[in-house]
């Protein structure tokens, strides 16, 4: 038997069970039962972080969505503020929609690109270093900022890299503090 007691493998997390113990029959079959829930797919249980594909979709999608909402809100307020007293309702509405849509798309695209670069760099760092911790996120943030501002010159890239690294480290530290102190 695969699970019988004669097999001396991995006895440390099992207990012995005898289904014939209430019957006075000479059948002696002992089975090892697990003491914890047993996974059918061990790779499901061994997974400790999102895969690179999940990371890519998550960071890009949430970045674009956050940027689009924030940009649209800001553009709407700006469009409302620019309204003239002589404008009719149609012209005012048209200006608000144009301003909101334009700003939303612009900021959404920017944050989506930032999320894409960050996800790629973080997954690459996790793959290279073989571990998932704060250093990965900080270095990925630094690389993201530098890459995003690379075309604007080395000084601007350095400043953006520093801002990105600090922001990523603060985000990870904030998330860990949130998990520890906020009872969710």
């Amino acid at each position: 038997m695969a699970d019988s007691s004669s097999n001396s493998k991995d006895h440390h997390n099992t207990r012995v069970y005898h289904p014939y113990q209430d019957l006075n029959v000479p059948i002696q079959k002992l089975y090892n039962l697990p003491t914890a829930p047993e996974h059918l797919f061990p790779e499901e249980a061994a997974r400790t972080h999102r895969s690179w594909g999940d990371n890519l979709q998550y960071y890009t999608g949430s970045g674009y969505l956050a940027g689009a909402i924030t940009g649209a809100a800001r553009g709407t307020v700006q469009g409302l503020r620019e309204a003239e007293s002589a404008d009719s309702l149609k012209i005012r509405l048209n200006r608000v929609l144009n301003s909101g849509g334009l700003a939303g798309r612009r900021l959404g695209n920017s944050l989506g690109v930032v999320g894409l670069i960050f996800a790629g760099l973080e997954s690459g760092m996790t793959h290279l270093r073989g571990t998932d911790d704060l250093v990965n996120s900080a270095v990925a943030g630094l690389g993201t900022g530098a890459l995003y501002r690379a075309a604007a010159g080395p000084q601007s890239a350095a400043i953006a890299g520093a801002i990105g690294g600090i922001a990523a480290a603060a985000a990870v530290a904030g998330k860990q503090a949130l998990k520890r102190y906020v009872p969710i």
């Binding site: 038997m1 699970d3 697990p34 797919f41």
Partner: peptide, 9 residues
């Protein structure tokens, strides 16, 4: 996905 205890045996 979890296996019921004793399913292999």
């Amino acid at each position: 996905t979890f296996k019921r205890p004793g399913v292999d045996a």
